[in-house]
């Protein structure tokens, strides 16, 4: 099985399931109910008491969305460099090395080919545990490559976003990834291939302000924080309290910014359904549209 092979490849580094606290029992971060860890994992990291969606490790996300044994990884052939020699309280190069070791992957994203209820997709999943899922040159490149390969292989693209935004340690080059990922999506558009974006907690900054909100269909997970500027930045700017639920998925649904809030348990089915519907167009002859049409 491809997925198992991929899991094996991660060894001997620790898998990202370690992102959840070790031990038999864990506490729901919303209602504080003690949950049996195995149950929480079996419920896709959703609290069975209050329905709170905990942040989900990348491997578990892929296992949840991809049909069994269908995932074939694409990412991993590009590795980040410290192009600016960025040092704050700790050198970026050291931070990178430490988090790479812990995560067992070169950067904050995994992409690959998968089937979702039989629909052929390219699946990209961002890793919030990896430097806050921030987008530097490598995350941008993996997204661009996944979008381009999806177009070549006539696959839909499913993006599961989770990110603090552009990675400041790579400076303006990170900012440019917003444009890079955007132009790389054009091949999908011109071939009429669906791009579905799933915004998970949290999706912010330059990621929200680029590929993550350019989906033909945009879903969000319940209560996910989704914004351009973070709540603290806004509070500091306007010196006022923010309305309840501000910048949460349900709020954005009411404001008309996303297509739906989809509970995790229904996500796979919903993705397959909309991709199937978008690919069921019979009104137009198959062919390509010019970019920009």
């Amino acid at each position: 099985m491809a997925l198992e092979r991929w899991f094996r490849r991660q060894r001997p580094t620790r898998g990202d399931d370690d992102a959840t606290p070790a031990g038999l029992w864990v506490k729901c971060s919303a209602c504080h109910t003690q949950l049996y860890r195995k149950d929480l994992v079996a419920h896709h990291f959703v609290c069975k008491e209050c329905g709170h969606h905990e942040r989900m490790p990348v491997t578990a996300r892929i296992a949840m969305l991809a049909d069994e044994g269908s995932f074939e990884p694409w990412s991993g052939a590009v590795r980040p460099v410290d192009a600016l020699g960025f040092v704050d309280v700790e050198p970026y190069a050291d931070r990178l090395a430490a988090v790479q070791q812990k995560a067992g992957r070169p950067d904050a994203i995994v992409t690959g080919a998968a089937l979702i209820e039989g629909e052929r997709v390219a699946l990209a999943v961002m890793d919030f545990q990896f430097l806050g899922g921030s987008m530097g040159s490598v995350v941008g490149e993996e997204i661009a490559r996944a979008a381009e390969r999806a177009a070549e292989e006539e696959r839909a693209l499913v993006m599961v976003a989770a990110s603090g935004g552009a990675r400041m340690q790579e400076g303006a080059l990170s900012l440019m990834q917003m444009a890079k990922t955007t132009v790389a999506l054009e091949g999908l558009a011109s071939r009429r291939l669906p791009y579905v974006s799933v915004l998970t907690d949290p999706t912010t900054g330059g990621v929200t302000a680029s590929f993550a909100t350019l989906g033909d269909v945009i879903f969000a997970e319940p209560d996910a924080l989704i914004c351009f500027a973070g709540p603290r930045v806004i509070q500091q700017t306007i010196k006022q309290d923010l309305p309840a639920g501000f910048q949460r998925a349900e709020f954005l649904l009411r404001k008309g910014m996303i297509d739906d809030v989809v509970p995790r348990g229904e996500l796979k089915r919903r993705l397959a359904t909309v991709i199937g519907l978008l690919r069921a167009g019979a009104a137009m002859a198959p062919g390509t549209l010019p970019a920009g049409a």
Binding site: T182, S210, F211, A212, T213, F228, I234, Q240
Partner: peptide, 17 residues
């Protein structure tokens, strides 16, 4: 881009993208 309540409500991230 301005970080404010109305700006976020009106989809600041969406219009930039």
């Amino acid at each position: 881009a301005y970080p404010g309540i109305a700006a976020e409500e009106q989809g600041q991230a969406w219009v930039i993208a």
